[in-house]
Design a protein around this nucleic acid. Structure first.
Lengths: 345, 345
DNA sequence: CTGAAAGCGCTTACAG
DNA sequence: CTGAAAGCGCTTACAG
């Protein structure tokens, strides 16, 4: 007694109609009488029939699949450790699910792998995270006739759909907060500092605030890994090599290392050093003292990216329209900042 | 000049062979002469042809797709905040990629959604994370004739393929560490305490260690959210309602809240309270004082799960074989534990 | 309103 | 060693 495959033909037979009618019912084409439709639906329900997407895909060229690519070409560390990716992917998935799209998560090691991935799977859209403007992946992908959204990237107009946050503003507002407290020497801990990157923009904000105040100093900038360890090592240098009174870290994760190092060296936060982070991670309010930070909504970033994908799918004309979404950030006051020691009494 | 679709027919024409031969070359069936194979390969390369998986899938019933499902039926908070999921998914993805499988990440809200997902996409395998033994999803999924691996679940023999860690051992070793320091009253902060769950097993380890020592006390157990906030709230109660000298948290994330609360109340770690976490998160060594914790390798858990999937795919006979992989955990000494105050001088 | 037929791009017996 | 043909499960003109 072998289980017959439940496919459209099986349903058609049970409902005494043709497979074309079953298809019309499923896709609500409306060219079916109400009674027939009802009967077909009943059969579908009773057998829990749910169609074969591969066959549908083959016929319609739609896969209902979005690719989410986190380039492995980036420094390995960032991928494994950044606690944000899950939140991001979570936002993407839930938004995609609303419209019955699935997401396939893919790490790639070369541009060719990406195009192969896209064509093999007939992807309906692609979300690329943290692509660098000069990356061969970006060049390759822009040639494709496919809805794409770049996340946390700063690409030129040839990549019309991008979602990010106001990084420059975040960098500026964090710096201005420290300036307003009276800090003049604000050390910076940053990841990779390419100009057209998230860090690059945050840096611009930092620099412009300081330049307005004539206190920008190249020697206070420390490029390190975006990780707790990276923050720790940068802080060691800051303590010994500079006379900074405040530390701005372009990620909360690094700020963990800043705290650790300051604690080990017997430096008090905020008495000896004020500290400001970036991201507004779930743990920032649980650090002691509470970390002042620039908060962003990572989940929403993912959701917006999916919105832009659907925009491109639903209205092909918009393909030409520029649409860079820049989500706002908020400065979160914490107990990790105070006026510098010299100005206090 | 419209771009012709590059499909198997196109390649066949360019190479002057039939599509059957192209197919045989692609799939290395070996029934093709060396010269022909070479010529075909050249054409394939020059057009960067990469096949259509939907068509292949339709024909062969293989999708080269694994589903990774994090049940949304669990308390919402756990999904969004747990920093481990990314590490887990990262391990799954990289292992799957080695054998050219892609993974589709899916949140589900009902058992029906899951079966629909599986049949629609013709999944070749499924990884289910943190399923409860009495969950309808588990019941539904076990009926299916599909390679499945349960992660961090404690199901009976009817679910032969499971991957987890030695939770009971972890709970025991953490407790014994505190006992050996002289602590008698060890408060416990745990998430959901179902018997057949990760927390349930860790609890068994905790309880058995304490019972052996005749110091198990039901009043020292605090069930709360697996989150920093949950840890914070539980600690407030521990301080005011108990005379505990040590706190064991079944997650490092909660331990963040423990630290926060103790700091706020002016309690010193480890002088007033010893603290032990669980998981060995990237941030545990960056807490001050360094958190003693039970370390697990989340990425490896994901990789092992994929291994078990391939085991089932490659050898259908093993479908009956029991194979629960329990990965080891290591106790990581930290600066967060010390003998209780009363025993010190 | 309904159904027969073609075709999406593959693989796989089968014949030669 | 090679190719013609059938068929996987759908959708979509098209005819009736």
């Amino acid at each position: 007694m072998l289980q017959e495959n439940i496919n459209i033909k099986f349903i058609a037979e049970k409902a005494n109609v043709s497979i074309a009618t079953v298809s019309n019912v499923i896709n609500s084409k409306g060219r079916v009488s109400v009674e027939t439709a009802l009967r077909v639906k009943e059969v579908i329900d009773s057998y829990q029939y749910s169609g074969n997407l591969a066959a549908k895909n083959l016929r319609t060229r739609k896969s209902y699949l979005f690719g989410v690519v986190v380039s492995l070409l980036q420094p390995e560390g960032r991928i494994k450790n950044n606690p944000f990716y899950w939140e991001l992917v979570s936002g993407i998935e839930s938004k995609a699910r609303e419209k019955s799209f699935d997401i396939v998560l893919k790490g790639i090691e070369s541009p060719e792998e990406l195009t192969t991935f896209i064509t093999q799977r007939n992807l309906d859209g692609l979300i690329l995270v943290g692509a660098k403007s000069d990356s061969p992946v970006v060049a390759k992908v822009k040639e494709l006739d496919l809805p794409i959204v770049f996340l946390d990237s700063y690409l030129d107009e040839s990549a019309p759909f991008q979602v990010g946050i106001d990084d420059a503003f975040g960098g500026r507002v964090a710096t201005e907060h420290l300036l307003s407290l009276g800090h003049q020497r604000i050390a910076l801990i940053t990841g990779d500092l390419e100009p057209d990157s998230v860090n690059g923009r945050r840096f611009r904000g930092y620099r412009s605030a300081l330049q307005k105040n004539r206190s920008f100093d190249q020697n206070l900038i420390f490029e390190s890994d975006t990780s707790a360890q990276g923050g720790f090592e940068a802080t060691e240098k800051i303590i010994t090599e500079t006379n900074a009174t405040a530390i701005l870290s372009f990620s909360d994760v690094s700020a963990l290392g800043v705290y650790k190092c300051l604690n080990e060296k017997g430096c008090k936060i905020p008495d000896d050093y004020s500290v400001v982070g970036f991201d507004g991670s779930y743990f920032s309010t649980f650090m002691t003292p509470t970390l002042a930070t620039v908060k962003q909504d990572v989940g929403e970033k993912g959701e917006k990216a999916v919105d832009l994908l659907f925009l491109q799918i639903e209205d092909a004309n918009r393909l030409k329209q520029q649409s860079r979404i820049s989500l706002p950030v908020t400065f979160m006051v914490g107990s990790s900042t105070a006026p510098p020691r010299s100005t206090r009494r």
